[in-house]
């Protein structure tokens, strides 16, 4: 991007603050809906950082795929599994959080040390700037052709897999009368295989069958 240095630094600081604070909000906020919307903000901030890095095509792809598809998908999942549940207390949860926080802080320090002590080959070649989209197209249809085609196969597999996994099994006919029903929302009762084996009255569910 050919904008003045101060503006560039200001943009970088603002976008970094948005991304980092948004990520902290995603992780720390108790309400999952706020987390999902903040995640959209993080994705938009990342797209802005990509624009600062001379990558307009990837920024557009980021907005289309992440904000437009992944974030909406996450919101749908939140709506589908939206049940108020009180989480049971776990012994040693605070200790676990502090320990993992320490490990993550150590990882952060390690990464910072690597980033600041390595002698990067700077300055590198002149960035192509606005020709980046053309270069990406050339790459995708010459030396990255096989991964490109495999990505389309992967997306097809993911689509079919997601449909198969999330599909409900429905009865095609009414259970009592045997007449065919048109509404596809009557759900089969699930086998209690994965539900906790202790039933409500304390009897194990598997041993109640004679």
């Amino acid at each position: 991007m050919t904008i003045a240095s101060t503006i560039q630094q200001l943009c970088f600081l603002t976008l970094s603050a948005v991304v980092v604070l948004g990520a902290l909000g995603v992780v720390l906020l108790p309400n999952i809906v706020y987390s999902a919307f903040l995640l959209g903000g993080v994705f938009l901030g990342m797209a802005g950082l990509y624009l600062l890095l001379n990558a307009s095509f990837v920024a557009a792809a980021q907005i289309l795929v992440y904000v437009g598809a992944v974030n909406v998908l996450i919101l749908f999942a939140i709506m589908l599994v939206n049940k108020k549940e009180t989480l049971a207390a776990i012994p040693g949860l605070l200790l676990r959080r502090l320990l993992s926080g320490g490990v993550c802080a150590g990882l952060f320090v390690l990464l910072l040390r690597v980033a600041f002590t390595t002698h990067w080959a700077l300055p590198g070649p002149q960035p192509v700037g606005e020709e980046a989209t053309i270069r990406i197209g050339e790459h995708l249809f010459s030396d990255y052709l096989l991964p490109f085609e495999l990505a389309s196969v992967l997306l097809l597999m993911a689509m079919i897999g997601a449909i198969v996994l999330a599909r409900r099994d429905v009865y095609s006919s009414d259970v009592i009368t045997g007449e065919p029903v048109d509404q596809g929302l009557i759900e089969k009762t699930r086998t209690p295989l994965l539900i906790d084996s202790t039933a409500v009255d304390g009897q194990p569910l598997l041993e109640t069958t004679p």
């Binding site: 980021q62 992944v70 990255y144 992967l154 997306l155 993911a158 449909i163």
Partner: peptide
């Protein structure tokens, strides 16, 4: 950048399958 595009693709597939598993 090309690699980032592939990462975005795989991330989209991962999100779809992951949320289906979650459901």
């Amino acid at each position: 950048q090309v690699f980032a595009i592939f990462v975005i693709t795989v991330a989209a597939a991962e999100a779809a399958v992951g949320l289906a598993i979650l459901l």
